[in-house]
Write a protein that binds this DNA or RNA. Structure first.
Lengths: 340, 340
DNA sequence: ACGGCTTGCTCACACGTGTGCGCAAGCCTT
DNA sequence: AAGGCTTGCGCACACGTGTGAGCAAGCCGT
């Protein structure tokens, strides 16, 4: 109902085909008279014609739209990545739609299905992990997608991430050196994700490098939520022998940790140094020494879009993208310090 | 290509029509034999059939998808609203796609166009304001949409928001009472938005109520960004006569403000009470007295979806929604305190 | 006069789905 | 035996777009 090419065609007095050719910029290619083209364009503009991407996508099997499925859009880390991805995609002539799975594999799967059936040309996925068979299915069908932040050892595909083991190790070594000799507590994230496991592995590596014994009491496995940080810190507070420092696997855990620490002050907790991944604005103002692994969010988003578009364009629409080797982008993190 | 109804039909040995009827749950209505239906369903499941929402949307002029365009998804306020909206929409059988305009009316307009041409059944919009002619266009065409958080006096339509004037006034009166007699500085947001203007009006009303003279030096107009908070605070720091308290129009401005205050300490700045809109987790841990107007984010998101779906279902697909009176939902804010 | 070339456009099909109408076969009723 | 009802399903069109093939008219050269 909202105005077709047919309406424009009738108004101008040409066939619908001609309108289609003109409006998709192929006027010259099909030798449409300049006069005719101008009249068509004017009419379309005047009546506010907007092509149906549904019909267009149905016909061409291409929508110039990328889907972005992240695990938690309320995490500024992912919000910034999403923002960067949008900008990059727009520059390349692609629109973007965002979805947030809330770390729920079922929702993630549903989102992917939805975006696919809605004609997205490709997907960028920060997977919740756990159950990820649907990702294998994507790969087997040759559907273009790029993993973001979280990867899977047994699933070879394009991805953009950081070296979590190394970053975590560097960060924790730095933390250890600050309070030496140090018992560093570990508030971990989802162990179903490569980031969760990698950061734990980096923790172990740092302990080994500094010849510190691994103490299971100091390792709390949780998920990437504020609540998890609260609960983990709660557990630490109950220890007979408190840690000398705390590592939080991401910024949400850090929130919970700091909140709990603030609520139950007293030494050594008050002055205990804390480290975490992912910079957020508040770190500049919290009155505590922080060491943070800053991931290049803008670069991650932009690179993911770049890889995805490359993959999307590597074969005619509607056909599987096979053959081309997969690209693995590992970006560098930067250690930063906050607080006095 | 990704498997149509025809494939299923051929495999089972029936016509495509029958497959369509069965898979859209109208088997009984069209008296398809139970046996046949089961075979079709089994075959579809086995081969992983996924209907093309493109074709379906093209045919039915309905996509069961709602678009959500917010001004800044990296603001937890909007992220939480988006999250709530998704949940509510899912419960009602609608999918959701999110877009973030970054407070840019042009991007907002592009997003709206894109979502519409992609077949979204309706939109929830937290508009950037400034240029909003495209919203009038939506209304004139009878396209279903609900404004969120920000409204326009000259545009009557469904909306969900809070009474910014009252909330701001209550908040600032409370702030004044704390440090009486008080010179309260105002770090404002985008004046192109009703929230920006409303919160300023509330500020003026609070001053009047407490019989405090309006001092233009204390009023900084900016936008809803961290940078704006930084710059505004910078300006305050340069005043010969410092304020006794600071009001920030939203959480991002608050970030910038606190950051700047932390970088340049000394009395009276160190102990100066600060107020703002929108609760974020970090407020529990910042070592400063805060009074915050907490908006019911989940309720806002859910209510907006409810209104939108009502509007969407109020007329057959593809036809303008006119006639029904518009609903204005004004939700209550809650004043909360943080810090010692 | 006639064939070939250029210009400027149209015809008709395809994409995958939903749906009103209709039809054949079997059974029941009278 | 004829008419009508029920059961179970298919035909064919529509949605709005892109596109390969083709067609009429004019012009040119011989």
């Amino acid at each position: 109902m909202p105005l077709n090419m047919k309406d424009i065609a009738d108004a101008v007095g040409v066939s619908r085909t001609t309108v289609s050719r003109v409006l998709s910029g192929k006027a010259e290619q099909f030798r449409i008279a300049r006069k005719t083209a101008e009249r068509i364009i004017a009419e379309a503009k005047a009546r506010g014609y907007r092509p149906s991407e549904l019909a267009r996508g149905l016909r061409t099997a291409r929508s110039n739209t990328l889907g972005l499925v992240v695990s938690d859009i309320s995490n500024p880390f992912f919000a910034n990545i999403a923002w960067a991805a949008e900008q990059a995609a727009e520059k390349a002539g692609f629109a973007t739609v965002i979805g947030s799975s809330g770390e729920d594999p079922a929702r993630e799967k549903a989102y992917i299905e939805n975006l696919r059936s809605r004609g997205a040309d490709g997907l960028i996925i920060a997977s919740a992990g756990g159950d990820y068979e649907h990702l294998f299915a994507l790969k087997n069908e040759g559907y273009p997608f790029v993993l973001l932040d979280r990867v899977f050892e047994d699933l070879d595909c394009d991805f953009v991430a950081v070296d979590n083991v190394r970053a975590s190790r560097d960060l924790i070594e730095k933390l250890i050196d600050r309070v030496q000799p140090a018992r560093v507590a570990f508030l971990g994230g989802r162990m179903e994700t490569s980031t969760g496991r990698g950061r734990l592995e980096g923790y172990r590596a740092a302990l080994r490098a500094r010849k510190i014994e691994f103490d299971n009491d100091l390792v709390i496995r949780g998920d990437y939520s504020v609540e998890s940080g609260r609960m983990g810190t709660e557990a630490l507070l109950a220890l007979k022998r408190p840690p000398d420092a705390i590592f939080c696997a991401n910024n949400k855990i850090l929130f919970g940790c700091l909140e709990r620490l603030a609520a139950a002050p007293g030494e050594p907790w008050t002055s205990m140094p804390v480290a975490s991944f992912d910079v957020t604005p508040f770190m500049q103002i919290v009155g505590r020494r922080l060491i943070v692994a800053s991931q290049p969010e803008r670069a991650i988003g932009a690179r993911a879009v770049e890889l995805l578009i490359k993959r999307v364009l590597s074969a005619p629409p509607g056909t599987p993208r096979m053959g081309k080797p997969f690209e693995h982008a590992l970006l560098d993190v930067e250690l930063r310090q906050f607080g006095m």
